[in-house]
């Protein structure tokens, strides 16, 4: 093996995968054709997803706080995992009030973010649909999703409760507190921002700007299609398995 053939071998064995898994997919993914509606009165029109909230800024803070170590944002197709069928992770189930909106993750779900927080582990639940899930659970209660999120970030085990299978489960969250995102100030200065918490007399807890951006982002995580139809190509909602 001469030095020249050695270098050539390295160039070939690294260069080919480099093109195949980095360069080509990158250029393909940066210019994805928008999905088009195939039926109905929107036929032929391009689908443009909408998100509101401080998505880019909040996504960055989500990454900096390291939320992706314990939370994923990915509803896998059924060949890779049963995420679609897990509670309200992938959207809401069919009820009298709303259609079945569960679906897999599509590329446009991460629009507006610099990096897709797929996540490394599931110590906590998937957050793909967190915003819509909160809307759903908090319906008819005197708590906005934003306030619930502030309380959860500040003190995860004493907040208004965790809901699963339509049952409220208290204090089972294993999420560490992010109290660094909040500050204590004299109650007279808090205005309307104070969190509804039992605090010492004259003290109020208010969210910092980082907490506001993060919560705005978390509340924007609504990956179902309530209100806005999804083009057929993205509508990958599989039939649920029959209960055993």
């Amino acid at each position: 093996m001469t030095f020249k053939s050695f270098i050539f071998g390295l160039l070939a064995s690294f260069g080919l995968p480099w093109l195949a898994v980095v360069v080509f997919p990158f250029s393909k993914m940066r210019a994805l054709e928008p999905a088009k509606f195939e039926e109905g009165d929107r036929k032929g029109l391009a689908y443009s997803p909408m998100r509101d909230g401080r998505v880019n800024e909040g996504s960055k803070i989500y990454g900096q706080e390291g939320c992706y170590h314990c939370h994923t944002q990915l509803i896998r197709p059924t060949y890779a995992g049963p995420d679609v069928h897990r509670d309200e992770w992938a959207g809401l189930r069919l009820t009298a009030d709303n259609p079945d909106t569960r679906r897999e993750t599509v590329p446009t779900d991460y629009d507006g973010e610099d990096v897709a927080h797929i996540g490394l582990g599931r110590v906590g639940p998937d957050l793909s649909n967190l915003g819509r899930r909160l809307d759903h659970y908090l319906k008819g209660r005197d708590l906005t999703p934003e306030t619930w999120l502030y309380l959860h970030l500040y003190s995860p085990r004493t907040n208004a409760g965790y809901v699963e299978n339509d049952q409220e489960i208290h204090s089972h969250s294993t999420c560490p507190s992010k109290s660094g995102l909040f500050k204590e100030i004299p109650a007279v200065q808090a205005g309307g921002q104070a969190l509804p918490l039992y605090t010492p007399e004259g003290v109020a807890v208010i969210p910092t700007d980082r907490a506001r951006a993060l919560v705005s982002y978390l509340a924007s995580l609504k990956k179902d299609t309530l209100g806005a139809p999804l083009p057929e190509a993205y509508n990958l909602n599989p039939t649920a398995p029959t209960k055993e």
């Binding site: 997919p25 991460y110 897709a116 797929i118």
Partner: peptide
Amino acid sequence: DGSPLMAT
């Protein structure tokens, strides 16, 4: 500047 998915 590319897809957030490819960055990940």
